[in-house]
């Protein structure tokens, strides 16, 4: 199936917050287009507006200048066609795993039978069979985040927005979940926008990597990653791209100290 739905676009978007009465420009005239079925990564220092971009695409924040579009139509609020996985799992602590995933289907058009099988399929997709009845507090961080990913996918959205979903995990679990994300993306061809502070993660997974700089939040560079999949983490070309991205990031104010450190 050729992906036809799931394009996202920002046209000259400026987003201001007011902090203690004084204005703060979180995004300054940002324009960005995401192709249907594309895997886009966004990297940048903290505070450069990465989460803000995802929240605007998700429809959680309607007050901004410029246009935010999903398949050409303005985004005015959340939609089941756009899933968002937050940095923290944000599971309902009072529901076991399967009912947390089911909770995403409350307003779906599926009948009860189809809902049950969708939940079963997506729990399997993230490899959590056997934990359907577990409560969130019984899960490890990685497992909870996988439930959150299953919840984000269960409506089979055109778009999945991921806000540093693997940031808090240990290296081994993270590598494992990166492979799972890639497998899911290859299978479902959902448009994915992944915010990460891990450059390795970005080049390993993405078709293009957006580099942002803070104060005010701007897009500094967009780097295509054309290597075929499955990718090898040790691949020469991948490592060159990684070095290039790190240099670009180091040029942004927040990373100046890091660049000095690396040169030393």
């Amino acid at each position: 199936m050729v992906a036809t739905a799931g394009s996202l676009e920002m046209r000259s978007v400026t987003k201001r917050y007011s902090v203690d009465g004084s204005p703060l420009v979180a995004l300054d005239d940002v324009s960005l287009a995401v192709e249907p079925g594309e895997f886009l990564a966004i990297v940048g220092a903290s505070g450069c507006g990465k989460s803000t971009i995802l929240r605007l695409f998700a429809g959680l924040d309607a007050k901004h200048d410029g246009a935010v579009l999903h398949d050409g139509a303005p985004i005015v609020g959340p939609s089941l066609q756009r899933g968002l996985v937050f940095q923290e799992p944000r599971l309902f602590p009072w529901l076991p795993v399967e009912r947390n995933v089911l909770a995403a289907l409350r307003n779906s058009h599926l009948d009860a039978h189809a809902r049950r099988s969708a939940v079963r399929d997506h729990i399997a997709l993230v490899g959590l069979q056997g934990f359907e009845r577990a409560y969130p507090h019984q899960l490890s961080g990685g497992m909870a985040q996988r439930v959150a990913i299953a919840r984000g996918l269960v409506n089979r959205p055109d778009v999945l927005l991921l806000d540093e979903p693997l940031g808090a995990l240990d290296a081994l679990t993270r590598a494992h979940l990166q492979d799972e994300l890639q497998r899911i993306w290859v299978r479902e061809r959902t448009t994915m926008v992944l915010v990460t502070h891990d450059v390795d993660e970005a080049v390993y997974l993405a078709d293009r990597v957006v580099v942002m700089s803070p104060r005010p939040g701007r897009i500094r560079d967009i780097v295509p990653v054309t290597l075929p999949r499955p990718r090898d983490r040790g691949d020469e070309a991948l490592l060159r791209l990684r070095a290039h991205l790190l240099r670009t990031l180091a040029g942004t104010p927040q990373h100046a100290g890091l660049a000095l450190h690396r040169a030393a």
């Binding site: 998700a58 959680l60 959340p78 939609s79 089941l80 968002l84 937050f86 923290e88 944000r90 309902f92 909770a103 995403a104 409350r106 307003n107």
Partner: peptide
């Protein structure tokens, strides 16, 4: 507020917000 935001994301209506969150 973070869980209420999850409800908004899942397009919960007011009654669903009340009963489910």
């Amino acid at each position: 507020a973070t869980l209420v935001e999850v409800g908004a994301l899942l397009r919960y209506r007011r009654s669903q917000m009340l009963l489910a969150i």
